[in-house]
Structures are given as C-alpha cells and as structure tokens.
Amino acid sequence: MNVTQILFWFLSVLALFGALMVVTSKNPVHSVLWLIATFFSISGHYILLNAQFLAIVNIIVYAGAIMVLFLFVIMLMNLNKTTEPKKNRWLKLAGGVAGGCLLLVFIAALKSSEITQQTAEVKTGDIGLIKNLGRELFSTYVVPFEISSILFLSAMVGAVVIGKKE
C-alpha cells in the first residue's frame, strides 16, 4: 500500500463518515459543518487525481461561499429540536423504501456499466491543471460554457430585480 492508497482510503472513509453525519446530525448547523468536512475530503480526492483546479474551486465555491450562505440562513432561523416537525412513522417507512429502491437502481446501473473496468488514473494526466482545463473549456466545450455563463448572468439579473422590488 503506497501513500496514495493510504490517502485514498483515509479520504474515502472521511467523506463517507462526513456524509453520514450530515444526515444523522440532530443540529442543522452540525450538519452543515459535516458537509463542509465532506467537501474537503472530496477535494482531497480531486488532488489525488491531480485535478488541482477542481479541488480548489470546490473549496472556494462550495465550502467557502455556498456553505457560508447555508450557515447564515440556518443560524438566523435558529432551528432546534422544538421547532422540528413531528414525523409520521409511515412517512419514515415510505422514505426508507424509496431510498432503498434508489440504492438498488444505482447498484444495478453501476454493475453493468463500464465504470467498473475503468479505474481512475492517479498521479497521471494533466487535464485537471488550470491551463489545460481552460484550453479545453474555451475550445472544445465553448458553447456549453458560454450557455452556462448566460444562465448565471440571468440568475444575477433576476436576483437584482427581486432585490429591488420592495
């Protein structure tokens, strides 16, 4: 087992544990913090794949900005046990069944897919470095890239319009 593998297992365990804690934490603020930990371990995975740009953007955008907004909202709403709605037992059962079905579908889909044959290339490939990624985005994928930027622009305009309406 070399260093990369040790790191891979460590990060995987951390990511899964963090994700579980997100779901099981009673306090929503704790959930958000565990989610941040999960993002960090996922960023670690990106670094193992030498996708440095993706790793850091994941941290800046998700951990650094979006989660802060989540925290904002949750902290100001002051959610705690007393405000938590009572859950129906049947609802829980239905949720469990639905979740289990989803898991089954996923397993079935992944089992027959080609992903099992393709292992991630660790320590090779420079496509994740910012220069190559930028070149790809602005040549091969320029149309989807620009469309998504228009999407963001319209979202920004919409936010300003909503903010102005008082």
């Binding site: 603020v29 941040i36 740009f53 850091i56 953007v57 650094g64 900005a65 802060v68």
Partner: peptide
C-alpha cells in the same frame, strides 16, 4: 509550489469566515 497558488490563497481566505461564524454562533 502548486499550480494554483493564488486560488489556494483564496480558498483559505474564504474559509477564514468559519472561524468567525462558528465562534459567534
């Protein structure tokens, strides 16, 4: 000497918020 030096600084700076927010909350 990583490829994304400046972005790394931004990443860390954006995490600086958590010390404040968590402490305050």
């Amino acid at each position: 000497d990583i490829n994304i030096g400046i972005l790394y600084i931004f990443g860390v700076v954006s995490l600086g918020v958590y010390g404040i927010m968590i402490g305050g909350w």
